[in-house]
Every structure is written in structure tokens, then in C-alpha cells.
């Protein structure tokens, strides 16, 4: 589908979903802050950073291997929280990046996080390292840092592909506590096998809301849940209508159901 005019029904649905999310964000910003459940993997952040500090070893962060997109920005906002924990404990953090644009934004994120925690002097220029633009060269680069720096806590958040297991398994070999989260569902089994905590599915997007308790983000999460309810409703209507059509043949009810099913079908 190239343009909305090819299917106004689907396009209208996207607009409706967007309005629900924006509405909930604005309502939360005006003080109606909702509650969201705890995400166990994220509670482990302080524990992992604290343990790394006790061991006198650094914390590693990898914001995935895609460019500066929504997923990477989300990862960076999670790392902003991790970096503040690192600064509070007075430890050192390293962030490896595959994309030059991400490198600049990551430097700003870390520098601001350290300043916010009252320890701007802890941030060094080489803490954010642009390694390469190549997927597997990046994987070896990260593996090298994990081994050489004897990293004690490793955070993998962002878009990961086949290289995810290289990061996670090498992290496991050096004995690091590992917390991971990705939007790439096909990598989740590998991360579960090698990491201590894994944030699954849209928990990844909920993570920054959970960590910051920022009303905007919390409102957005609740908006998403309302959207899910709406979609579930549409799916249920589709299932019931299609099932009824196997029982009812002919007549105005069948005609109505046919029209409804045809309307719901994505062309």
C-alpha cells in the first residue's frame, strides 16, 4: 500500500490509533499519570552496575546495529538511565556504536547523564567508541572490548541481528551480568540462552517509561494498550463473523456478515 487512498479503512485505523496514543500522552502530561507494571529485567540494572563497581570493572552498553532510528533512540534513552547509575556508583562505562550519527547522539546522552548525576568529570571522550559500519567487524570489535576490558555488566538494547549471540556469549564467557532487550523477536531465544535478564517484545518500548516514570512516556504506554484492546476487538469481530458464516447461509444476516468480513479484509 503506497497511499492512504488505496485503502481508507486501514489508513483511518492508523489515524485513530495515533489519536488514541496522542490523547493519552496529553492527558498524562496534564496530571493523569497512569500506573504500569514492573519489568523485572530493568530492576536488575542497579544490581548489575553495583556489582561491576564492586569488582572494579567497567559497564558495557551496545545500542544495537541499526542507524539513528526509533529503536536506537529508545535504546539510548534506556542507556541514559544506565549511565546515571554508573555515574552515581562512580564507575566507568563504554558504549560501542556501529553508526557515526548514533555516535554523536550517544556521546551527548552519556555526557548529559553523567552531568545529571553530578559526576561530569567521569565522562571521557573514548567512552563512546565508533568501531566500524560492518556488522561482523562490529561484532568482533565488541567481543574484543568485552574481553580486554573485563566488562562486569553488559547491556544490549536495540536492533540486533545474527551478531547478538556473539555479544551475549562472549559476555557470558567473561562473567558479565547481562541485561538485553530487542525488537528483533528472532534474536530473543539467543539472548535468553546467554543473558541473565531479557526484556521481550514491546516491553522494550515500555522500558524508558518504566525507568523514568515520565508522564509522557507512561501516557504513551497506556495509549498503546488501549490500541491493543481496539485491535483485539476488531480481530474478535472478524473471528465471530467468519465463524458464524460457516453456520448461516443466505438471508440478510449472512449478507451483513459477508459485508463486514469483506470490509475488515486488508486488500
Amino acid at each position: 500500500m503506497q497511499h492512504a487512498s488505496e485503502n481508507w479503512w486501514v489508513s483511518g485505523l492508523v489515524v485513530l490509533l495515533s489519536l488514541i496514543i496522542i490523547g493519552k500522552v496529553l492527558s498524562a502530561q496534564r496530571g493523569r499519570v497512569p500506573f504500569i507494571r514492573r519489568i523485572p529485567g530493568l530492576n536488575a540494572i542497579d544490581e548489575a552496575v553495583g556489582r561491576a563497581t564492586e569488582m572494579g570493572r567497567p559497564v558495557m552498553m551496545v545500542p544495537g546495529i541499526s542507524g539513528l532510528d526509533v529503536v536506537t533512540l529508545q535504546a539510548l534513552s534506556i542507556f541514559s538511565y544506565v549511565a546515571r547509575a554508573v555515574a552515581r556508583f562512580g564507575n566507568k562505562s563504554i558504549m560501542a556504536t556501529i553508526d557515526p550519527i548514533v555516535t554523536g547522539v550517544a556521546e551527548e546522552t552519556l555526557r548529559d547523564a553523567y552531568a545529571d548525576a553530578g559526576r561530569p568529570e567521569l565522562f571521557e571522550e573514548g567512552d563512546v567508541r565508533y568501531l566500524t559500519g560492518q556488522q561482523f567487524a562490529f561484532a568482533t570489535g565488541v567481543a574484543g572490548i568485552l574481553i580486554r576490558e573485563k566488562v562486569a555488566a553488559s547491556f544490549l538494547f536495540g536492533a540486533f541481528y545474527a551478531e547478538s549471540l556473539i555479544f551475549a556469549e562472549v559476555g557470558q564467557q567473561v562473567g558479565a551480568i547481562q541485561v538485553a532487550g530487542t525488537t528483533q523477536t528472532n534474536q530473543i531465544p539467543f539472548l535468553i540462552a546467554a543473558c541473565d535478564y531479557v526484556v521481550i517484545g514491546d516491553e522494550f518500548y515500555a522500558a524508558s517509561a518504566y525507568l523514568s516514570r515520565d508522564p509522557t512516556l507512561l501516557g504513551s504506554i497506556v495509549g498503546q494498550d488501549y490500541c491493543k484492546l481496539l485491535l483485539l476487538g476488531i480481530i474478535l469481530i472478524g473471528i465471530i463473523s467468519t465463524s458464524l458464516l460457516t453456520l448461516i447461509h443466505g438471508g440478510p444476516v449472512a449478507h451483513l456478515l459477508h459485508t463486514l468480513v469483506d470490509f475488515l479484509k486488508v486488500k
Binding site: I22, V71, A113, T185, A206, S212, L217, Q224
Partner: peptide, 27 residues
């Protein structure tokens, strides 16, 4: 869930509803 998360995050960035280091206000 992921697609809705992507939609919500994109909307927040597009409309500058987001707050963060790169939006001139700390989380």
C-alpha cells in the same frame, strides 16, 4: 505490540512530545 510501540514512539518524536538528553530535557 512492537508495531504499536513503534507507532507511539515515532509519534512522540515527530511531535516532539518526547523528553530526553537529545530533546534538551533530562529524563
Amino acid at each position: 505490540g512492537l508495531t504499536l510501540g513503534l507507532l507511539a514512539t515515532s509519534l512522540r518524536y515527530w511531535l516532539s512530545l518526547e523528553r530526553g538528553a537529545y530533546f534538551d530535557k533530562e529524563l
